[in-house]
Design a protein around this nucleic acid. Structure first.
Length: 270
DNA sequence: CTCTTAACCTGGACGC
DNA sequence: TGCGTCCAGGTTAAGA
């Protein structure tokens, strides 16, 4: 489900519900997701005022005075604010009850997500080696060009490396490479500075637009208010193997890179 | 270091 | 209807 636009959409949807609320209690229906849920979540969160909710890369940080709950939605996670008595369904793993009777509920069928603890003043090691935010000024074509010199991995793999730039997952990597006219198979070190400038611009434009539209709806992405995203119908290549390229009408092809489908147009992308 | 591959887990779509 | 196979938005760990 979530790449950066979906996580940001989730954050924006949750923020008004959480602002200035306190945590009334925490319910863990299983001891772990991807990793064990640390004891601080149950020990330190209850009673604390929620100071805000931030996003870094695809992580969400629920800030309180002693520290922050660090959440990742993995492939299938979702967060919603619901009336406290809402019936618990399959894969509803965690509830963070609020002082107004509502509950922040974390559902994640595949359990690739996580709920961890970051003490006040520290940076969790998962956040230590992340690249810049794609919508920040520090991310541009020159940055990609310099970092990519000598790299032999495919440019799509390079772009999806969270240590290079965060937040670009399989959907938006495919879309940005199409917009920039770059083949996903090309070695990262063999893309020119000019084409990286086009790629960085495409990443920024597409992510910003997807956030504006409320994220991509695939299968079951639903923002915290229950509104589906509207980006899916505008995808150019993702999920369209064999269909006609919207630019040249030739069939789109798939190349498996890093075990991920990579749909592209062999004619429009070089 | 860089790069590739397998693995984590569940559910839905599809073919027979 | 049922069963096997493949695939899915992410990330890490291990190996070459």
């Amino acid at each position: 489900m979530p790449e950066l636009p979906e996580v940001e959409t989730t954050r924006r949807g949750l923020a008004p519900h959480l602002k200035s609320r306190s945590v009334a209690g925490v319910v863990l229906r299983r001891p772990d997701l991807r990793w064990p849920i640390p004891p601080e979540i149950k020990r330190l969160l209850p009673g604390e005022k929620i100071r805000g909710i931030r996003r870094r890369a695809k992580y969400l940080l629920l800030d309180t005075d002693p520290g922050s709950a660090l959440l990742h939605l993995g492939m299938s996670g979702s967060l919603r604010v619901l009336p406290g008595k809402t019936k618990v369904e399959a894969h509803d793993h965690v509830d963070i009850a609020l002082d107004n009777g509502k509950v922040l509920r974390f559902n994640d069928p595949r359990r690739f997500g996580c709920l961890l603890w970051q003490p006040q003043g520290e940076t969790h090691e998962l956040l230590q080696d992340l690249g810049p935010e794609p919508l920040a000024d520090g991310f541009d074509g020159d940055y990609l060009f310099e970092l990519s010199r000598g790299r032999k991995a495919p440019v799509k793999t390079f772009l999806m490396d969270q240590g290079i730039v965060v937040g670009v997952g399989n959907i938006y990597a495919a879309e940005a490479l199409f917009e920039a006219g770059i083949s996903p198979l090309r070695a990262a070190g063999r893309v020119s500075r000019e084409r990286y400038q086009a790629l960085a611009a495409a990443v920024k434009r597409i992510l910003a637009y997807a956030i504006e539209r409320g994220g991509t709806t695939l299968r079951d992405f639903i923002d915290p208010n229950g509104t589906p995203g509207y980006f899916e119908q505008e995808l150019q290549v993702y999920g369209r193997e064999g269909e006609a390229c919207r630019r040249c009408r030739r069939p789109l092809r798939n190349a498996v890179l890093g075990n991920r489908a990579s749909i592209y147009c062999p004619h429009c992308q070089r």
